[in-house]
Amino acid sequence: MILAGIDMGIEATKAVVLRDGAIIGRAKASTGGTDRPIQARQTYDAALAAAGIAAIEVEAVSATGIGKYDVPFAGRRVTEVIAAAHGAGHLCPGATAVMSVGAGETLIAALGADRLIDEYALSQKCIAGVGLFLRTMADRLGIPLDLFGDGEAACVPTAVSDGCMVFAELDALSMLNRGAEPQTVAAACIRAAAVRAANTGFDLTVPNDTRTVLIGGTAKNRAFVRALEAAMGIAFIIPAGAEYAGAVGAAISGAKGLRK
C-alpha cells in the first residue's frame, strides 16, 4: 500500500511517501501564504520524485498542520494530535506518549491502550512559537540552528524570560546590548524555550513515562532536546527524521479511509 502525508506547518511543509509502512521518499519546503497550494504540490512532487513513483500510484494522500485546508489534492485531513500519535506509534512501536515541539505549536499526547489517544494537551497562546523563536534568534545571532546553544557557554537561568517568547527576544537583545557573547545568549534562549514548551505537559494527568517520543523540527537541536529533557524529567526517544513524523502520521491515518 502506498500512502502519502503532507504536514503543512507555519514555517515548513513536509511531505512523505510510504510503501507498506516504510518511508520511500520525503521532501521539505517553506510553507508560505497565498502560495500554499502551490508549495504543497511542489513539495509533494519532490517527495514523489525522491520515492521514484508517480502520483497515480498513491492510494491516499492526507494532510495535517495549520495548512491542511490548503492542500487541495489531499483526500483526507487529520488534526495534528492524531497525526503525531500515528507518527510516533509507527516510527517507535511501543511508545506510550508523544510530544511535538514545532515552529508554532507544542503538543503532547498520552497514547491509549485500546484507543489512539488517552489524553492530550495543546500549547495555548503564550506557549506559541517556541520553534520559530529559536529559528529567528539563531538567524539574528548568526549561529546555525543545529548548533544553536551548543557548547559549554554559561547560562544565567533568569537572564531570558521563560514566560513569553516576545519578552524573551527583548531580553536576548538586552543581553547583546550588555556585551554577552552570542552563544551565551543562545544558551539562555534555549533554556527559556525549553521551560516554555515544558509547560504544555502540565495539563496531562498521566505521569511521565520513559517511552515518550519527541518529534518536530526542534528535535534537531541537541541543546534544546537536553534542556527540554531537564525541564520535563523525561529521556525522550527521538526517531530519525523526527521532523517528518507528523507527515508520516497523516499518511498512516489515510489508510483508515481505505479500509472497507
Binding site: 501564504g33 500554499r36 495548512g67 491542511k68 508554532g104 503564550c126 506559541a128 517568547m165
Partner: peptide, 17 residues
Amino acid sequence: TCWAYANAETLGLFGRP
C-alpha cells in the same frame, strides 16, 4: 494584545475556514 497572537491568528486565516 500581542504580536505572537496576531501572527498566529493571521497564519490561520489562509485556507478554508
